[in-house]
């Protein structure tokens, strides 16, 4: 079972049923009332269910961490998150950090042009990390393409359509519909 779980990156649990009488929680000389109550209860309630999680093998943990490290260097945040979630409590906490990173990235990516400035810290953070990773000699060509696309995504700016530009340029000036538009105003009018 352990080797199958290692292959599938699945946690392995053992379920055990502990007899309450043998667990030492009860007095060895139960009074008559307690005895009677025990006899009235169905048999299943006299067992306590315990779950034990098998610790991962050293090699499995190392393999997961190596994969997660590689995913993080390639900015594959979703994969890093999933790989780390298969590990122990410490690794699950790291998986949550990766989820935060991914959500922050997606929020910056999906932000409208007018709201990009709200995510400037994330955008600059991504650009700075890409710059840092870019200088690494070991970076493969496919990773460089991926990082370049990410920079493009962070800096993308939806072009404004010609129709929209025309509408803005030809928009009537404020107050142009008024009969007094373009006429000299009296001193009284100006002061009011």
């Amino acid at each position: 079972a352990k080797s199958w779980c290692a292959m599938q990156a699945a946690p392995l649990f053992l379920v055990s049923f502990v007899d309450e009488e043998s667990s030492g929680n009860r007095s060895s000389w139960p009074d008559r009332k307690e005895n009677q109550r025990q006899q009235e209860q169905p048999r299943a309630s006299q067992h306590e269910i315990q779950l034990h999680r098998f610790a991962m093998g050293r090699e499995s943990e190392k393999a997961l961490l190596e994969t997660a490290s590689s995913c993080l260097d390639n900015f594959e945040l979703l994969s890093a998150m999933r790989v780390l979630a298969a590990g122990d409590a410490d690794m699950r906490s790291l998986s949550e950090d990766c989820e935060c990173l991914r959500n922050g990235y997606l929020r910056a990516y999906n932000a409208k042009n007018t709201e990009k400035d709200l995510h400037i810290e994330t955008i600059l953070g991504v650009l700075e990390m890409v710059k840092e990773l870019w200088s690494s000699q070991s970076l493969g060509a496919d990773t460089r393409v991926r990082l370049a696309v990410m920079v493009g995504e962070m800096l993308k700016h939806s072009p404004v359509s010609k129709k929209k530009v025309d509408a803005i340029l030809n928009r009537p000036l404020l107050g142009s519909q008024s009969q007094r538009f373009g006429k000299r105003a009296s001193h009284k009018c100006l002061s009011s």
Partner: peptide, 22 residues
């Protein structure tokens, strides 16, 4: 910030890896 979380996560993973290797 996003950058510090990224760096911290990467560092923690590497520290765990080196602890396992030693």
């Amino acid at each position: 910030s996003w950058k510090s979380t990224y760096q911290k996560t990467r560092r923690k993973i590497r520290n765990k890896l080196s602890a396992l290797s030693s």
